[in-house]
């Protein structure tokens, strides 16, 4: 590990053992339960999972936007360019939001304020963070709008969101997000509300923006097709935990966690047809009432006794491939044992 860190540059973002809990009348909900991952500059990581798995809460925790008072970041570290965002003042945090880390949400209609002009909304992050002088503000806003392919941007600065189509609105949201030149962009299902052909246009644009400005992206989704288009690596989440981290190629070719495997088999895909889906029985657990041991064990076809009592640790099973599953933990031990026998 040490030799690795001396040769490769420090990661842009390092999340260590992040825990965000919700304290409500129905008990303690472990929405994010010990999440760790790293993200390099220019890299895009997908957070894949079903609703309630903690993928959105993970990203809100990074920006310290967890809904209060019920939600609280209980422990962990969010090291962004070496600085722990969970330990800095709220004032400093405001300088990070929008300037260094920006976010795009699912529904552009609720992200944009209907009573402010498009120009004003794209200009806001530039003003707040004092990125450009006032005299050059509108020139910069037009440039940003043309960057996200809004035709004739100068003539549309005074338009309101309702005058734009869904795809254009989401591109405007993209322009506000990248306005202040962030290093990290968190995109939470930005294409869900868009039509398929518009999705394809949007993803292509996002990829171009990423290449041009060496942006890092955390892309939150439940959709495999969009994930494959935008991400280098994937973290699969289930019940508040990352159960597997791997490259996108590995995701489609050699998923190791039974949940990842089942998810891939149960998702209707365009590139192959099956007569019947090998569906996962039951529903994802509620974070307020998690089973002991591995949270997937009650639905897992390969569950063993240990899975129902102890939570599996993350095990490295290949380059850039980590999995939290007792099946692979066992392999690891066996191969170790086999290795030591050989040595003897």
């Amino acid at each position: 590990m040490d030799t690795e860190s001396s040769t490769t540059p420090a990661p842009l973002l390092e999340v260590k053992d992040l825990r965000t809990y919700f304290y409500t009348r129905s008990g303690t909900g472990r929405a994010v339960d010990g999440v760790s991952f790293t993200l390099k500059q220019g890299e895009s990581l997908g957070l894949l999972g079903e609703s309630g798995c903690g993928k959105s809460m993970t990203s809100l925790s990074i920006l310290r936007l967890v809904p209060r008072p019920a939600g609280r970041i209980v422990s962990g570290q969010v090291l962004f360019r070496g600085r722990d965002l969970l330990r800095i003042s709220e004032q400093d945090m405001r300088r990070v939001r929008g300037k260094e880390i920006a976010m795009i949400l699912q529904d552009p209609l609720s992200t944009l304020n209907p009573v402010f002009t498009i120009g004003n909304q794209v200009a806001e992050p530039l003003r707040v963070h004092g990125v450009v002088s006032r005299s050059r503000l509108w020139e910069r806003v037009s440039k940003l709008l043309s960057l996200v392919r809004i035709p004739a941007p100068e003539s549309r600065l005074k338009d309101y969101p309702h005058q734009f189509s869904g795809g254009m609105r989401q591109r405007v949201v993209g322009a506000t997000a990248i306005a202040a030149g962030p290093r990290l962009l968190i995109a939470d299902e930005p294409t869900t509300s868009l039509d398929v052909t518009i999705q394809a246009q949007y993803l292509r644009l996002l990829k171009e923006l990423q290449r041009e400005s060496n942006l890092s992206i955390i892309y939150i989704t439940h959709d495999l097709a969009t994930l494959a288009r935008i991400c280098d690596r994937v973290a699969v989440m289930y019940a508040g935990k990352i159960v597997e981290q791997l490259t996108v190629e590995a995701l489609f070719e050699r998923p190791a966690h039974p949940y990842t495997e089942a998810l891939l088999q149960s998702v209707p895909r365009m590139d192959r047809k099956v007569h019947r889906f090998a569906s996962i029985e039951g529903s994802p657990p509620v974070v307020y009432d998690l089973p002991p041991g591995c949270a997937f064990a009650p639905r897992c076809p390969k569950a063993m006794d240990i899975c129902r009592s102890e939570s599996p640790p993350a095990t490295r099973i290949g380059a850039d491939h980590h999995v939290s599953c007792w099946l692979h933990e066992k392999d690891e031990h066996e191969s170790h044992a086999a290795g030591s026998q050989e040595r003897q």
């Binding site: 795809g167 039509d195 398929v196 052909t197 394809a200 292509r204 097709a225 288009r229 190629e249 365009m270």
Partner: peptide, 25 residues
């Protein structure tokens, strides 16, 4: 063709040969 291409899980980087239609409905 465009609809089906847009829904396929294509790897990033391979998208150049894919058909993306411009404009909107």
């Amino acid at each position: 063709k465009a609809l089906i291409a847009a829904a396929l899980p294509i790897r990033a980087g391979q998208e150049s040969d894919e058909m993306v239609v411009a404009g909107e409905v």
